[in-house]
Design a protein around this nucleic acid. Structure first.
Lengths: 153, 153
DNA sequence: CACTCTGAGTAAACTATGTGTACTATCACT
DNA sequence: AGTGATAGTACACATAGTTTACTCAGAGTG
């Protein structure tokens, strides 16, 4: 982001919470895709990230994944189809319910997900080094309180 | 986000910084669009948000806006064209350089941008009430330090 | 001055990604 | 059996982005 950095100095008060959250969140997003691509998972792009994040899709039903990602079941189904073609996962019938299906990572899918988590841990290490362990923990704690609160529903 | 809230309790340590930033950032994003639509700016949708955020597009050249938004000049040009058709802005020739152009908000554009900033201030007020003034200020300060750092380039 | 090179803005074809509508299969309830 | 609701899927459609390509203005050079 080459915002105003070249010009006058910017202070905390100038920035609103929207930009303060958005800019680092997007930076992390790009970083994960880049590192994933560099690690050999070259087909993965931005929309696939809806699946390769925190509670992974493994063992979950398509409809739940759609709701998590905030998209329609049809869109999620396409995503799953493309990732199935790419060999990252398979959809099999659920054992308990006839109409339901279950998403399962393949070996490659597990590897990609593990890599994404590794990148995230690397990012955390870098941030911890930059801010100091105490302040980084504080940042996560504050964000967690936001996450728990009704603010983000 | 109906993540795992229904199930076992989640602790700070379980969450990685990616999700902790992404979830509130997206919540703010949706909130701004909703409130903007509710306030009468019904045509504005997600992609337009690339323009209605912090340093607005007013007085800036298309190429700079494209770089800020992290998209190609052509894509930005389309966005500008659609917003011009909707009456939010105009593109006029730059006074100094013949080949350059300058984006200018119309009255409606200024009103929408002001509304977006108002929503952001409302959000800040709510977060301050939820976290307490001291912790909210602390959160912004920590995010600002991230923003300043080389971490997010 | 003509000549070339570069950069800003634009336009059109192509691609992809999401939504809306619609269909099938299964479950729950009567 | 019959009805309605739900999970998953398929396809037409709209939307938004990138790639490729063009025009025009400015800068430098012979």
């Amino acid at each position: 982001m080459t915002f105003l950095r070249e010009n006058s100095p910017v202070k905390t008060k100038d920035m609103l919470i929207g930009a303060l959250l958005r800019v680092p969140a997007e930076a992390i997003h790009r970083r994960i895709i880049n590192d994933l691509n560099a690690a050999g998972f070259t087909e993965l792009s931005l929309p696939h990230m809806a699946l390769f994040r925190f509670p992974g899709p493994d063992g979950v039903r398509p409809g739940v994944l759609a709701e998590r990602a905030g998209m329609s079941k049809q869109a999620m189904n396409r995503l799953l189809g493309s990732l199935e073609d790419l060999g990252y996962l398979i959809r099999s019938d659920a054992p308990d319910e006839g109409r339901a299906r279950i998403v399962r990572f393949t070996k490659r899918g597990h590897a990609a997900y593990a890599k994404a988590m590794e990148v995230l841990r690397n990012i955390e290490r870098e941030w911890r080094a930059e801010l100091g362990p105490r302040d980084f923990a504080q940042l996560k704690e504050l964000l967690f309180r936001v996450w728990e609160s009704p603010l983000v529903r």
